[in-house]
């Protein structure tokens, strides 16, 4: 009974451990420390998005616009971080900015997009699915418009530090940023009134209203936080690719939703954990890294990823069914 409970609660962690274990045994290249760090590094961007997505989905929402929000944040961020000598600059007369400027701008743009999403949902009453589906195209359109459809590149060297710098000689900066996001989101969800209210809204929105919770404000805040994390992810993205492409991060919302879902966040709201989102993102990252290293055909990789999402959700549903 006890073992069964642990299995049902931490089953998905077990899947991750088994995956890593099997890969370590069969592939000497996988188990190299440098590669294991790669796995973490490659989980960062959709991992950060999955954190925000967890909040959104617990609150019974969804965000189909995170991919294009990321792209919009990225091109605007990069445009303020170009070298003075870059050709085809968005702002030809802009002097080189200290790196904090493009970073703050990226975060700000993310928050604004999130607030717009939240306003659509809170004040018009349209479902989050529709509001963010619209925003998916709108944000992508703004990204293309802003950049003229072309990538923004030739960035100041500080972005290189963000993308490939190491702290203490081993910890990649993006992983550090991811860890900070995990910690902040964890505290936010577990130790603040805001977090408790997110669960409450997802669990029973009417009861939440009666309990004195300002639901509209909460929806705005939840979406703003998602936008903020999209901005953070955009900064990491720009750092990693040293450029920003308006077509970037297409489909990332689905990876983020899938990671969240594998991690046990219920699409019907009210259930979900931060560690679940982290484990979900890691499973994706391990899968992609491992399959490439094993030389598995790329077409098969996509098929396997799809199955993993379904299996993950099946495990999750069984877990919840047992409790009900």
């Amino acid at each position: 009974m006890k073992a069964k409970e642990i299995l049902s609660k931490y089953g998905i962690v077990l899947v991750l451990v088994i995956m890593v274990g099997v890969l370590c045994i069969v592939s000497p290249n996988f188990r190299k420390p440098a590669n294991l760090m790669n796995v973490l590094l490659q989980a960062c961007i959709f991992g950060i998005l999955a954190l925000g997505m967890t909040l959104v989905i617990i609150g019974k929402g969804t965000d189909l616009a995170v991919g294009s929000t990321l792209a919009l944040c990225a091109v605007i961020c990069a445009s303020f971080g170009q070298k003075a000598s870059a050709s085809g600059k968005i702002f030809p007369n802009l002097p080189e900015m200290p790196v904090i400027v493009p970073i703050l701008i990226a975060l700000l743009v993310g928050v604004v997009v999130g607030l717009v999403n939240g306003s659509f949902i809170a004040f018009t009453g349209i479902p989050a699915f529709i509001a963010t589906l619209g925003m998916q195209t709108i944000a992508r359109g703004f990204a293309l418009l802003y950049s003229g459809g072309k990538p923004v590149s030739t960035l100041i060297p500080a972005f290189k530090t963000i993308g490939s710098g190491r702290v203490f000689g081993f910890l990649p900066v993006p992983v550090l940023i991811y860890l900070i996001c995990i910690a902040v989101t964890w505290v936010l969800l577990n130790n603040t009134r805001f977090g408790k209210r997110v669960y409450a809204i997802g669990g029973n929105v009417q009861a939440a209203e009666v309990s004195g919770i300002n639901v509209k404000k909460m929806i705005l805040l939840i979406n703003a936080y998602m936008g903020l994390l999209a901005g953070v992810a955009a900064v990491v993205f720009v750092g990693r690719t040293q450029s920003a492409h308006p077509g970037a991060a297409t489909g990332y919302e689905l990876t983020a939703i899938a990671s969240t879902t594998i991690g046990g966040t219920s699409q019907s709201g009210g259930i979900g954990t931060v560690w679940g989102a982290v484990v979900g993102a890691l499973i994706f990252s391990v899968l992609r890294n491992g399959m490439t290293i094993l030389g598995i055909d790329a077409y098969w990789q996509q098929i396997v990823e799809g199955f993993v999402v379904i299996i993950g959700v099946v495990i999750d549903m069984r877990k919840n069914a047992r409790k009900a």
């Binding site: 669990g203 029973n204 009861a207 939440a208 209203e209 919770i213």
Partner: peptide
């Protein structure tokens, strides 16, 4: 409908 948060724990339901 407007009372409990069924999925949440008792303490959260009381303290919300």
């Amino acid at each position: 409908g407007t009372g409990i948060f069924p999925l949440l724990s008792i303490d959260t339901n009381i303290a919300i």
